[in-house]
Computed example of a mutant assay.
Amino acid sequence: MRVVAASLEQVDLEGARRGLVLSLTDDEGRVGLGEATPLPGFSPDAVDDDRRALAELPGALGPIDLPGAPASPGTTTGAAPRATAFAILRALAPVSSRLRGLPAARFALETALLDLLGQRVGMPVSACLGGHRRHDEVRVNGLLTTSVALPEMLERARALAARGVRAIKVKLRSRGEEGFARDLEALRALRREHEAVELRLDANAAWSLEEAPRRLGLLAPLGPRFVEQPVAPELLHHLGACDVPWAADESLAVEGMPERLLEAEGCAAFILKPAMLGLLRAHELGRRAQARGIDAVVTHLFDGPIALAAACELALGLPRPPLACGLDAHAGLEAWPAVRIPQLREGGLVASSGQPGLGVRPWMA
């Protein structure tokens, strides 16, 4: 199978943010979709660089070769599921060096190729990534922030609970000792009202290596599952075991850091953002983390429907069920053309689309 045509569409979002939708057509007329929507100020790549790469590179892709083909649509006979991921890596090999530093562009290309290949072999992307699914659904977590007034934060928590969301992540936005004290009081109020909810916290790398253990000790009575990225990405492996476990987020994008964190005491989870890591790299890190007894959480980057669908497939394609994932629909989707994300279900669930490939239909058709 070869890619014979490619097109790129830009979607203007709020502020300066823009999304890119990549369409790849193979030699039998199938169309695979990918998306690059880097987040300004957070992603290492800029949308203009991604656009140039996605306009130039599809023509240089290698063939997508499998050891066999399915006997009939919807079956996997003749092609080992894991072979599909290796087929994508081989197809990307001629352009891999030009994708360095452009994870959103790599994510788009990998997604579109896996969408094509899944359609060809009659498997969803999750099965192409990890073989036959071992879990049928994944729960999503809710998201709150301490930057809003406490009554509003508590009201949002009630709305999440009413939807059936059982895990809540709180971004700790305040800075300095006074700010941390305010956040701590807000979290205590949240815990009093929601005793059974799984609480996760995100410090966004704002704490120093010296103050992090003390602050984690103060948070321990609240029983958080973990605190994401308490210190700077390049320092996280030095933190060690603390009163509250911690999770790696931005650190996973630092060269050589995932390998250190797989061995680090105190690391409870890898937060996998395929828009920051690439789809295949995120799956590899999730697989390796789970093999070491480290939990995995998949999350979007407030990107669009194609990237969100791909992130859902990643969560469904891990060897073991991940923890509740950051895959809930978000307000930013309203800036995109209306398109159904078949993996998102009512009640805070992600489930298989039941369709080959990504299962998202292009609005451009």
Rank of each mutant, 00 (worst) to 15 (best):
L33E: 02
R225F: 15
T75S: 14
E250I: 00
E177K: 11
L318E: 06
I294L: 13
V165M: 07
A149H: 11
R30A: 15
V11N: 02
P213V: 04
P221E: 00
L285Q: 04
S251N: 03
A157I: 00
R260C: 06
A60P: 14
L116F: 00
W246M: 04
L216V: 14
L187V: 01
E263A: 02
P230Q: 07
V360D: 01
S96L: 15
G223Y: 03
E14M: 08
F107C: 10
A167Y: 11
A232H: 14
L117A: 14
E250N: 03
D328T: 09
L184T: 02
G34E: 11
A282E: 07
P221M: 06
H132Y: 12
L24T: 00
L318M: 08
E193Y: 05
L344E: 10
D65F: 11
L308T: 13
W363A: 02
S97P: 05
K273N: 11
E346C: 03
G101F: 15
S208A: 07
R2L: 15
I271M: 10
D26S: 05
P274W: 02
A161Y: 05
D115W: 05
L13Q: 10
G68F: 11
L22G: 04
R82V: 15
L22P: 00
E56V: 01
L184V: 01
E14C: 05
A331H: 11
R166I: 14
D136W: 11
A149F: 12
A365D: 10
G164I: 04
P322W: 04
V95C: 03
C325K: 01
C312M: 07
P221I: 00
Q229I: 05
L308S: 05
A220L: 08
Q355E: 15
G131W: 09
R30F: 10
A93R: 15
I271W: 10
R260N: 04
G326D: 05
R191N: 04
